[in-house]
Amino acid sequence: MAIEAGKKMTRFGLGIFALLLGMLLSACSGSDSGADTANASAQDRTTVKGYALSTVMWKQVPIGVCWDMSNADFATYTTQRNWSRLAVEASWEAHSGATFTGWQQCTNDPNYYGIRISIDDNAANGPHTQGLGTNLNNVVGGMVLDFTFRNWSPSCAGREEYCIRNVAAHEFGHALGFAHEQNRPDTPSTCNEPAQGTYGDMVIGAWDLASIMNYCNPDWNGNGQLSATDIVMAQMFYGAR
């Protein structure tokens, strides 16, 4: 029921929800003006934060995932593919109604519903997506991941599992329709990372340093973990688990 409600929520409804939530939190802040720092921090963590492109949210779950790989590469990278899948399970799937299915080799089905992943180790481009959300639907190379790190981020040598998991969790945030947090117009001057990729059309709450989508997060890609407010934003669009 929560998932269906999340799917049917209109952009207008989301805007009203965010506005009312902001008003409620402001009222709470005023009434708790004498609260200690710990209480204030706890209140901040309840604020919905994020940067989403509301027009590209997937309307149905589960969302398909397939690998654009040769038979040889599909077999060679079995472990790396599994790390990627587990990273998504432990992040977006664990904390929202967004679910993914398949994870097999891609076919030429013109009606395929889902994300096609290619593998490349390109120093100039690195892992990325070709847009956000449903803009990736059945697009060859819609998502690109790196499994070798010989050219891009060679510092990942010797810690491939950590890097593969972190990158996969971040890129699947884009696949669900979430833009980079540092792209927001209210990004503070303390964040020196440039805007990158597609912009959202819906600013939700205050800027979130801890977001997995924020390049200024002191923990690279949030160490593959969603912030408390990433979770709230994901549940706004895809419902609770």
Rank of each mutant, 00 (worst) to 15 (best):
A5R: 13
G6N: 01
K7P: 01
K7H: 14
K8N: 13
R11V: 14
G15H: 07
F17V: 09
F17E: 05
A18V: 13
L19G: 02
L19Y: 07
L20T: 06
L21V: 01
G22A: 06
S29V: 00
D32I: 04
G34E: 10
D36F: 07
D36T: 09
T37G: 00
T37L: 10
A42H: 00
D44Q: 15
R45Y: 07
V48L: 15
G50K: 11
A52L: 14
T55M: 06
T55C: 05
T55G: 08
M57I: 15
W58N: 04
W58G: 06
K59C: 12
Q60H: 14
V61P: 00
S70H: 11
A72E: 12
D73M: 08
F74Y: 15
A75R: 15
A75V: 13
Y77N: 08
T78D: 08
T79Q: 14
N82Q: 15
A90K: 14
W92C: 03
H95Q: 05
A98P: 00
Q104R: 09
C106E: 06
N108Y: 03
N108I: 02
P110S: 08
Y113H: 07
G114C: 07
I115W: 00
I115K: 00
I119G: 00
A124Q: 15
N125R: 14
P127E: 02
H128W: 07
Q130C: 04
G131M: 09
G133H: 03
T134A: 09
G141P: 07
G141M: 09
M143R: 08
D146E: 09
T148V: 14
T148D: 13
R150E: 12
S153T: 10
S155L: 09
S155E: 08
S155Q: 12
G158P: 08
Y162V: 14
C163N: 00
C163E: 05
N166K: 04
E171Y: 07
H174P: 10
A175D: 03
L176R: 01
H180I: 08
N183Q: 02
T190I: 10
T190W: 02
N192I: 12
N192W: 05
V203S: 01
I204A: 14
L209G: 01
I212Y: 00
Y215K: 04
C216L: 08
D219M: 08
W220P: 01
N221S: 09
G222C: 13
N223Y: 13
G224C: 05
G224E: 02
G224S: 04
Q225E: 10
L226Y: 03
S227N: 03
F237E: 00
Y238E: 03
